[in-house]
Write a protein that binds this DNA or RNA. Structure first.
Lengths: 229, 229
DNA sequence: CACAGTTTGTTATCGATGATTACGAGAGGG
DNA sequence: CCCTCTCGTAATCATCGATAACAAACTGTG
């Protein structure tokens, strides 16, 4: 038989699969776990403490899942894959996810910091591959914020924000902007504008945007792609 | 003297300025509003009903605030300004914002749909100006999802995700990707890569990415910038 | 004015819930 | 054997959401 603490955590997690966190009564937890009420307060001090413990347990699963994410030779693609696995976890564990990422009270689960660090490390692998244009701290926080936003909107308003193309759209936007690795649409669009300016310059058939040209020259002055700040 | 319903709503809103929505007791509301307990249930049927009414009232303020947003001749800049005003509202009314955008229970405030429609209309003004690359429905939902995500992360984890540059980063990423209106960083970054390839071609000092060149030629085939789908 | 109907306010109460106390059984180590 | 630590039981308290019963005030009509 497992220890009382594990049974309480397990019972709470099982009830979380159906009800919301705040809709679960401590009595239901105790009955399912086969323990008495004081056991909760001996182990966790508080219902809030129990919930944060459950949230941290959820973060363990969440992070273990993310650590299994592939590390291919394309770190930007890995970033997108991590985004998708994040969304899958949220949709698969709605109440647990809300408990983890929108906690009530003032005691926050410490797993969120690890999640942030994990995303940041994935971003740093992009930087090491020369495919990052932003500071890794900012890039990681931006990606995680947008990722959580897409998930929470999908969970709270499934009929209005539940479609998966929203996730893909935001994912490609944020990951693309942070890494400079625009997907085909963006790259071709920008390239078209620039190439038209160049063609116009060479043939003399179109005016050149002087400001754009200035920016281009300025960017070209140090010939190596920007690797520092 | 105002009506009982208004006093209840006002008292709840005042208490929301300090406590969380679920931490407010109906008795405290009644005492502050100067009404008896049954009045809440006569007016709103339920505590949940009262909370959704308060959320809808918050949406009215929120939407009125957004409708006062400027309509300049640059709809993309208007989109960014609307994003910032959204963030300001969230930071100024944290508990109300969480009640509005992460409601508990199954009865959702209907203001969220109006908020989505308002963002979509702002996006459609971008499309009418020829500055949209995505379907307006998807663009509006993407922007709102990311916007809410940034706000909720800033509210739930202020020390980890409270900095304003996250909001700007995600804002420029999503708005830029949706409209194709990249800010200087993105544009210069992409232009640098392309110009380096062109310089390399002209001087013969660097290899040319054949695939990128193919895409460029394909994009240039119809000389006018894509204005339709 | 008298009367009926509606709304509003008061009091009391019920069931559920979070939290706590007191107490005891059992295990393991000195 | 005794001590301590963990776990389980039962009883209890305060609070909260919700409701019932009833009184007071207001409103419109004849």
């Amino acid at each position: 038989m497992s220890t009382a603490r594990e049974r309480i955590l397990g019972a709470t997690a099982e009830l979380l699969a159906t009800k919301d966190a705040l809709a679960i009564s401590t009595r239901a937890i105790c009955e399912r776990a086969g323990v008495g009420m004081p056991e909760i307060y001996r182990q966790f001090g508080d219902k809030q403490g129990l919930l944060t413990a459950v949230a941290d347990l959820g973060f363990e699963r969440f992070l273990a899942n993310k650590r299994r994410n592939p590390h291919t030779d394309d770190p930007v693609a890995d970033l997108r894959a991590a985004w998708d696995s994040h969304v899958a976890f949220a949709l698969g564990n709605p109440h647990l996810y809300r408990l983890m990422f929108t906690p009530t009270g003032d005691v926050k689960p410490r797993g969120i910091e690890e999640a942030r660090a994990l995303v940041q490390s994935a971003v740093e692998r992009c930087r090491d591959a020369g495919r990052l244009r932003t500071a890794p701290e900012l890039a990681g926080r931006s990606i995680l914020s947008a990722n959580v936003g897409v998930c929470l909107m999908a969970l709270c308003f499934p009929d209005l924000f539940g479609m998966l193309d929203i996730s893909q759209s935001v994912r490609d936007a944020v990951v693309g902007a942070v890494t400079g690795d625009d997907r085909e649409d963006t790259r071709i669009g920008t390239a078209t504008v620039l190439a038209q300016a160049l063609v116009g310059t060479l043939t003399g058939t179109a005016a050149v945007d002087a400001a754009a040209l200035d920016g281009l020259v300025r960017a070209l002055r140090p010939p190596a792609p920007p690797s520092g700040t």
